[in-house]
């Protein structure tokens, strides 16, 4: 084996151990609720807890709402920037990166200040209003991932020519977006959607400060009060994230093929 190849393997194994050992330890710990034997009791306790089901459902619904609202904003925006205002792309990219730079705690204090009970738009007055605020906050949080996923999808197709081809055949802008553009970037859109879901399911800071019954908040509470169940929850949330990532990989195989041919 060549020297450089050997080093590559050593670094890879060290990296894998660094990532995998804590996971294996967490998994083993989550199975060790009974002394001297492995069992799924911690998982049973977690899944059967009403709070788990409520918070998980809540986060799932907010996640889906985030994806829908996010796509309604991001897909037309990315499409128009690519088609009509490509010079705005660097600005839009910068704006979509801001949620990565601004910590969620700053973001949520800003929201609370802007939309509290004494503001012009007192969203925090009601549970529904706060849920809407939470969803919008998550839309902002997911923006870097969602925009990049959609923009990458748009890059794989000839947006201008497809738009013009549909347009001259009689289609208006909405029809073009729905029937031509969206189906051709659906895989990219779904990968953005799964990333968003993965973020929303585990998010703690914003949900906690807005006092919403989200899964991330529940995980923190369980972590503060129990021993084995938090480990089980961590494994469950890892599995959910991995499923989401696996779905992205799987869907990539179904992307419409656009390779040009000259024969």
């Amino acid at each position: 084996m060549k020297r450089s190849k050997l080093w590559a393997w050593i670094i890879l194994i060290l990296g894998a151990l660094y990532f995998l050992l804590p996971l294996v330890a967490t998994l083993l710990f989550s199975l060790s609720i009974r002394r001297g034997t492995y069992s799924l009791d911690a998982y049973t306790n977690v899944v059967q807890a009403p709070a788990f089901q409520q918070t998980f459902t809540f986060s799932l619904v907010v996640g889906v709402a985030t994806i829908v609202v996010g796509l309604l904003i991001v897909v037309p925006a990315a499409y128009f920037v690519r088609l009509r205002a490509p010079q705005l792309r660097p600005i839009i990219e910068f704006v979509t990166l801001l949620p990565l730079i601004i910590p969620p705690i700053i973001l949520v204090f800003g929201y609370i200040r802007m939309y509290n009970s004494s503001s012009l738009l007192p969203l925090t007055n009601t549970a529904l209003g706060t849920n809407i605020l939470l969803t919008l906050a998550y839309v902002a949080l997911a923006l870097p991932y969602m925009y990049r996923a959609v923009d990458t999808g748009l890059r794989t197709i000839d947006v201008q020519t497809l738009t013009e081809a549909a347009n001259i055949l009689g289609a208006n802008t909405l029809t073009i977006l729905v029937r031509v553009i969206f189906p051709n970037i659906i895989v990219a859109v779904l990968s953005g959607a799964f990333l968003t879901l993965a973020i929303v399911i585990g998010e703690f800071t914003i949900a906690s400060l807005l006092n919403r019954p989200a899964f991330g908040v529940y995980m923190q509470n369980v972590g503060a009060n129990r021993a084995f169940e938090p480990a089980a929850l961590a494994v469950i949330s890892f599995v959910i994230t991995w499923i989401a990532m696996g779905m992205i990989q799987l869907l990539a195989r179904f992307a419409p093929k656009t390779a040009p041919r000259t024969d």
Binding site: A165, N167, I168, G170, V180, P260
Partner: peptide, 20 residues
């Protein structure tokens, strides 16, 4: 008139078939 109201057919250099 906008393109979608001109009743004109067009063929593009890059084929522009809808991949989906």
């Amino acid at each position: 008139l906008p393109p979608n109201q001109r009743k004109i057919g067009m063929v593009f250099q890059a084929y522009a078939l809808f991949p989906n």
